[in-house]
Simulated assay, not measured.
Amino acid sequence: MNSRTDEGRTRWVFDGRIAGIGTASGTRLVLGCWTHSPFGPFGDVMIERRDGHRVLLAPDSRTARFIAATYVFDEVRVEPVRVTVEGDRWTVASDSLTLRFTTGRRGPPGLVLRAVPRALAIRPRWIEAVGLPARLLRGVRTRGTAGGGRHEWYGAQDLHPVRSAGAVLEGVDLGPPAAVVPPVRFGFGSTPRRPCLVRVTTTVEERREG
């Protein structure tokens, strides 16, 4: 999952799912649940409060350092992030956060994304060549410049709406689900405006001199 090309580039590939959920309190949550990655399976949560304070929850210092070098946060917390999936029901638990949500049946965007062969959908050149994934995800940017001079591509392959959700952060109920508004500001792009779960392969590339 971690390789260097002949052109002096290092690429890290993360395969899994991203859920973006807004709340009535104004806090927005982005869950990353990675089944395959250079660090093994893990979950992380990016949180932006109403006042713009950005927090990363990562399960260990190694993943925390990598994510914090790729995105921008005001606070990084290393704490276990446990993700449990039972059918369409998801539960995320850490020292700071409890998040539960339920997904619905995929609609037309999910059907179109699934129609693209995975081997093609995850290729950076394909992502750069077509604007379809971004249009399907309502203006979401699928490629851009990440932190530390890194470049990043999101190869979306499926999408399910989130039909119910609830979250408690540091003992405070965040209220019912809402649109991810304003967009989160961890990197070059946000998640879709409507709460959803996206099947995605994320490629992060670092180009080295010499």
Rank of each mutant, 00 (worst) to 15 (best):
H53D: 13
V55H: 13
V55N: 10
L56N: 05
L56D: 09
L56I: 10
L57F: 04
L57C: 10
L57Q: 00
L57I: 08
A58P: 02
A58G: 07
A58D: 03
A58E: 00
P59T: 00
D60H: 11
D60E: 13
R62Y: 06
R62N: 13
R62A: 10
T63R: 09
T63K: 06
T63Y: 02
T63L: 12
A64G: 00
A64E: 05
A64F: 01
R65S: 10
R65P: 12
R65Q: 14
R65K: 14
R65L: 14
R65Y: 12
F66T: 07
F66R: 00
F66I: 11
I67T: 06
I67K: 03
I67E: 06
I67N: 00
A68N: 05
A68M: 13
A68L: 04
A69R: 11
T70N: 08
T70Y: 05
T70M: 02
T70H: 01
Y71C: 09
Y71G: 10
Y71D: 14
V72Y: 15
F73R: 14
D74W: 05
D74Y: 08
D74T: 07
D74R: 07
E75R: 13
V76E: 05
R77P: 01
R77K: 11
R77V: 05
V78T: 02
V78H: 00
V78R: 02
E79M: 08
E79I: 04
E79G: 07
P80C: 01
P80K: 03
V81P: 02
V81Y: 11
R82F: 13
R82S: 13
R82W: 11
V83Q: 08
V83F: 07
